[in-house]
């Protein structure tokens, strides 16, 4: 289930990367590498488990499936957190920088206004 969820995530992120083009500032490529890397490795793990357990590998119990789905969703959440952190830290579109400086500018103008009103008083 975790492998399946990871493969879906990999395909969706790759499609998004393709749709947005290589000049996109959203760095979707990071998600593609994360999900494809994990999918390939989990695939190998699945092959070895199939060799070991045979057809029963495809018949997991309800509890096993639920736990595995929970794991898969958690892995996707972790990958999304890594991705958004990378986007915000590298700030390719400069949105974080603009937001920070705008805040500073507004703070500076506010203190200047306060000084002016104090002087007038």
């Amino acid at each position: 289930m975790a492998l399946l969820l990871c493969v879906f995530a990999a395909v969706i992120s790759t499609a998004l990367w393709y749709a947005h083009g290589e000049n996109s500032t959203m760095k979707i490529g990071i998600l593609c590498w994360l999900f494809w890397g994990a999918s390939i490795m989990w695939f190998v793990d699945a092959v070895f488990e199939y060799i070991q357990f045979g057809a029963s590998y495809f018949k997991p119990s309800g509890a096993e499936m639920l736990n595995d789905a929970f794991l898969g969703l958690s892995v996707i959440a972790l990958a999304l957190v890594i991705w958004i952190a990378a986007v915000l830290i590298t700030d390719p579109s400069g949105a974080v920088k603009r937001a920070l400086f705008r805040q500073n500018d507004s703070e500076n103008s506010r203190t200047e206004k306060e000084k002016k009103t104090e002087n007038l008083k």
Binding site: A2, L34, G37, S39, I40, V75, L78, I82
Partner: peptide, 20 residues
């Protein structure tokens, strides 16, 4: 870099699975 990205990507998520 493509190879290292694939490897690190997989390793990070698999490390989380092992932690789980």
């Amino acid at each position: 870099t493509w190879l290292t990205n694939l490897l690190w990507g997989g390793v990070v998520l698999l490390a989380f699975e092992h932690l789980w």
